[in-house]
Simulated scan of single mutants.
Amino acid sequence: MTAPAINGTRYPQPVDELLPAARKLELPEGQVLPSRNRLMREFRIGAPKADELLARLREEHLRRQLAEQFGYTPPDERPADEPPADPWLYAEPIGPDPLPAPVVPESAPLVVPDPAPAPVAPVVEPVEQVAAPGHPGTPTDDKPRRRAAVWPVVLLALPAFVAIWSGWVGLGGLTGFGVVHPLPGIADSVSLNTAITLPIGVETYGAYALYVWLSGRVPDRARTFAKWSAIGSLVVGALGQVAYHLLVAAGWTSAPWWITTLVSCLPVAVLGMGAALAHLVREDA
C-alpha cells in the first residue's frame, strides 16, 4: 500500500504524513512491525527516513504493550485532569513553602500595591516562505514533471560495447579461451567460444553493481559492497583493455603466465561477487 501524495505533489512526504499509512500495512502472521526494506519499497523513501518511521512505529508498539500489561496510559495520551491507575505513579505537585506574613506596625499606613498589568501577547505577522526554483518545496503546476531522457546513454554505450567486447574476446584468445563443444556426443555441431564469458561477466557485473550502489534502495552493507565491487570491476575492465592492446601492439601471440592466471580467475570472481551482492540486496536490515 502506497501512502497518498501530499497536496497533490509527488515529492517525498514527511514522516508524520507516512505514519498513518504505515500503521495500515498488512503484515505476515507473527510479525508485529514492517521491515525497513518494506517501508523503503512501499513509500519510495530512503534509509534515514525509513529508520525514523520504523522507530515511530516501534515506540507506538511498546506503548500498546505497556497499556495491555500494566494498564498504564502514557502521560501524553492521558487527559490533563485524570491521574494514572497506579497511585504510586502519581504525586500531587509540591510548590514552594509559603513565606511568613510580614509584620506591619499599627501606626504604619496600609499600602496596597497596584496590580501588575496583564502581559500583552506579541503580534506575529504571517511570513510567506518562498523556496528557491527547483527546490522540493517550490509550488508547481498540476503537470507531472518529465524525467530526463536516457536514450543518449544507449548511443554512448554502443561504441564502448564494441570496443570492450572485441578487447575482452581478443584477450581471451591470447590467454587460452577459445572454441569448445559443450555437448559432446549429444550435439557435436554445437560450438561456443568461451572468450565471450569475459565481457559478459565482468562488464555486466560492473554495471549492475553500479546501479545497486546509486539506487539508494538497499541496506547499507549491500550499498557498501556494491560501491567497492563496482569500482573494482571497472578498474579490472580497464586493465584488461590496456593489457590486450599492449600485447597486440608488441606482437605477442600468447599472454604471459601471470596475465593468463589473472584472466582465468575472472569468471570465478564474478560469480562469487554476484552471489554475495544478491544475498546482501535481499537482506532484511
Rank of each mutant, 00 (worst) to 15 (best):
T2N: 13
A3W: 10
A5E: 11
N7M: 11
V15A: 11
D16H: 09
P20Q: 05
A21W: 00
A22H: 05
K24L: 09
K24I: 01
L25I: 11
L33F: 10
N37W: 02
L39W: 03
F43W: 03
F43E: 01
I45N: 05
P48S: 08
A50K: 01
D51K: 08
E52G: 10
R56K: 07
R58V: 01
E59W: 01
A67G: 04
G71Q: 07
G71L: 08
Y72I: 13
P74W: 08
D76G: 12
P79V: 01
A80T: 10
A80G: 08
D81S: 13
P83R: 09
P83M: 03
P84E: 02
D86I: 02
P87V: 03
I94K: 15
D97N: 08
P98D: 14
P98Q: 04
P98H: 02
P98L: 07
P100R: 02
P102Y: 05
P105T: 00
E106G: 02
P113K: 08
A118K: 11
P119T: 09
V120W: 04
P122M: 00
P126C: 00
V130L: 07
A132H: 00
P133D: 07
G134S: 01
P136E: 01
K143M: 10
R145I: 11
V150K: 03
V154A: 14
V154Y: 13
L155H: 09
W168F: 15
W168D: 14
G170H: 12
L171E: 04
G172E: 08
G173V: 05
G176R: 07
V179S: 05
L183G: 00
D188C: 03
N193L: 02
T194S: 12
A195T: 03
L198K: 14
P199V: 15
V202D: 13
V202Y: 11
T204M: 15
A207P: 04
A207V: 15
Y208K: 06
V212H: 03
G216Q: 03
R217Y: 00
V218I: 02
F225A: 13
W228D: 14
S229A: 15
S229P: 11
S233P: 02
L234C: 10
V236C: 06
V236I: 12
V236A: 15
V242H: 09
H245E: 14
L247V: 08
A250N: 15
G251E: 07
W252C: 07
P256K: 04
P256E: 04
W258A: 02
I259Q: 03
L262P: 00
P267W: 06
V268A: 14
V268C: 06
A276L: 15
V281T: 13
R282V: 13
D284V: 15
